[in-house]
Design a protein around this nucleic acid. Sequence first.
RNA 1: GCGGGUGUGGUGAAAUUGGUAGACACGCUAGACUUAGGAUCUAGUGCUUCACGGCUUGGGGGUUCGAGUCCCUCCACCCGCACCA
Length: 922
Amino acid sequence: MEYAHRDIEQKWQQYWKDKEVYKVSNESDKPKYYVLDMFPYPSGAGLHVGHPLGYIASDILARYKRHRGYNVLHPMGYDAFGLPAEQYALETGQHPAVTTEQNIKRYREQLDNIGFCYDWSREVRTSDPKYYKWTQWIFLQLFHSWYDRAAQKARPISELVSIFEQEGNANHTSPEDEKLSFTADEWKAKDETAQRGILMQYRLAYLSHAEVWWCEALGTVLANDEVQNGVSERGGHPVVKKRMNQWFLRITEYAERLLSSLDKLDWTDAMKEMQRNWIGKSTGAEVTFNVNDSNSEIKVFTTRPDTIFGVDFMVLAPEHELVDSITTEAQKAEVEKYIEYVQSRSERERMAEVKQITGAFTGAYVTHPFTGNDVPVWISEYVLAGYGTGAIMAVPSGDERDHAFAKHFNISITNVFGDKYNGEEAYSDKGGTIENSDFLSGKPVSEAIAAAIKAIVEKGIGQAKVNYKLRDAGFSRQRYWGEPFPVIYKEGVPYTSDELGNEELPLELPHVDSYKPGPEGQGPLANIADWVNTPDGKRETNTMPGYAGSSWYFLRYMDPHNDATFADRKATDYWQAVDIYIGGTEHAVGHLLYSRMWTKALHDLGHIGFDEPFKKLINQGMIQGSSRFVYRIHGTNKFVSYGLRGDHKTDKLHADVSMVDGNVLDTEAFKKWKPEYADAEFVLEDGKYICGSETEKMSKSKYNVVNPDDIVAQYGADTFRMYEMFLGPIDVSKPWDTKGIEGVHRFLKKMWRLYNDDNGWIVTDEKATDAELKVLHQTIKKINNDIEQFSFNTSVSQFMICVNELSSMGCRKKEILEPLAVLIAPFAPHFAEELWHGFGNDTTVIDAAYPQHDDKYLVESSKLYPIAINGKPRAEMEFPLDMDKADIEKQVMANETVQKWLEGKPAKKFIYVPNKMINVVV
RNA sequence: GCGGGUGUGGUGAAAUUGGUAGACACGCUAGACUUAGGAUCUAGUGCUUCACGGCUUGGGGGUUCGAGUCCCUCCACCCGCACCA
């Protein structure tokens, strides 16, 4: 009997489905284990072989944990809201719900092909009203909450109102405006609109303003990467920054907790480091400078208050609110021209062209608080409006960019570092002492910082300050295909649907006839007058961003059909946080940070019992495409083979990988591929057309996409699963090479032949030999270890070694082969199920206990030692493990080869590392 | 510019704590069986040398009896980014 993967896989997939083998209950005496994949966006292109890499790894782990007696939650769903579906709708008029449904269907078929053990009864889709009802509900929770800095947790806004009624805001500074101050009486005297305006400054979900790229010609708002060189990427139309009302999440209030609780997570250091850098905590001081002949003051944040005597100029972000009012008449034209220039620059360009120094002088001066000197105020794009206070005190002798700026604009430089500053390069190290700085002179940096802060506080011009570079998260998108906000504006003041009490969630996305943007940069929803205008007022027409639905989906899987709450507390208490989360590094700071914040907020408000969503995180690498190229002789329709391309001037063109076997092009298929190639001629080498190859991102446009369906059809899901794992470590990127799959397929066929020959089942009940048991138990030990460490590539190797050895021993014994079948079940579930049933078992293999190794089969009594002379291995000798060092030394020194290499010289040192090696030093 | 990652045969890679570098595969070479081979099996395969041997984990330096692994330094490539005061 041949290994008939097609029949086997079909049969067992049907069996699993019929018996609901992968259905998971929330009620169980077993310990729980939650294995989660980052759910996919169902794109129109379908899955390629890169997508399932992480899914296969998590599937192996989920199956393994189930074998080990856990109740395993292993769900899958779809991140189904998103821009591509809307873009497609714009182009074709097809409703995103329709195309999304089609894409999901395709994804599901592709996933089912691979034999995953997902509990599909728990599937979630973020675009399903039953799901986004709760996304909207969580938004309302955030809206109705504020962050109590003293208690370090979110609390209901109603409690804040009570506090205001009793004591005003004296003990609870507004995170947006620290100058805001009122008493209980003042609070009570305010009208509702004013009170709501104040509360908005505290809410975790709040309305504010932000600048977006607005393109008049396209009539739409563009994302950062849709803007290049100050024009739209599509069409090259001019764009300007437009200030719009936008919702935000006050994630900055969570900065400290998001930072400190990283310590308790089992994530890679690289991942934690990226989050730390993103949160960007820095300590320093906030200092206020008074603008001469004006009531204005400029507030700066600095990490180096000790260098305050080195301030030679001030720089404001071009967007800074004071720029207008302090610019002098004489400088007005220049400043305006500069701002116009900055307006045209994208953030990417500002970043890429760091060396380019630009700026303009406002004509204004501030008074230095300690020296009393006049300090000029400049504006420059190197200062960002969004970070700190949007203004800096520039110390050219101590900061590289300030230094370059001063040199460029001929501003004189005050040296506050003595000998350390050489006049050519800023001295930004923290060694040495501060000089030329009045009361700070002679002090080392840390002391000087403390003294400077003390003096600043005494003068009443500032205080010590912790700053985070994390910004609040924009939560509005001017798009159609996303969650609508359950918000209505009554005379311009936003009210939520539960406050108005006029409608239940979900607020469903209305049908639109056109996906074109609304007027003035609003989303398509603004075009539907019937929907926008309600008896209470106008609806919010923005929708929520992609990360809204994905910030909490892992909770919904625990109780996916609940209509009374987002997930029952009993369910979330049972499943707790995700034990293993697998996905790509591209989500390092976006999705993973937002999910953490939502989890903390839901925890603070008492809705769930844990405050971190993902205990352990595994990052999967990218599977790259291996592109193939053909070489067309320039100006002709003649193609030369790779090795001969040097003889001609050629154009390198992508050829579809499906027409290439290894590197050999199927020239007939190529001719049929595109009409312009129908008459192509080929210059061959050795009778073949050899293609060039390069590793690139797997993408349709590079014709290097490999569809898992094709691989599964040819080799079977089990081969595909094992090959993806065999490619290399899960976390590194590697190119896909279909050719290599043969080896894994051969291995499965070879393993199959341990159990079957041409006439059928051949397993016997004979007693196993020590050698066979040793191979089996070595393998069991290695596989268990490897799975725990996510080293699946080495597991596959070990299975190969095991089968190679058992084959050469001619092993046919049930005592060996039955445990081996269970052992391979997480990797090749259909294959294992077939063998498992071959032994007469009538339950599914996944409920079989996973084999555990017994050390008694692995004991060794001796070791074949490499003998090195001066570190170079020269001979081998076998010794019992318990032999004395002295006896070994005697025998080694007597060895002929050793003697030869010693060349009569006396041994200086004899190194014996038991069970490792022996080294003789001459 | 900043942050993170990766460099080992023709290719994907392996190598508990520093202890025989290249396991396991792909590819390639030769052979066996076969009507056939894109089935299966056997042998070989890092580079170099007729050979003894020498060289070899991105380059250079260091620590050590011994370094892919630890330290310093330089280089290349990939990913992310918000010039972070």
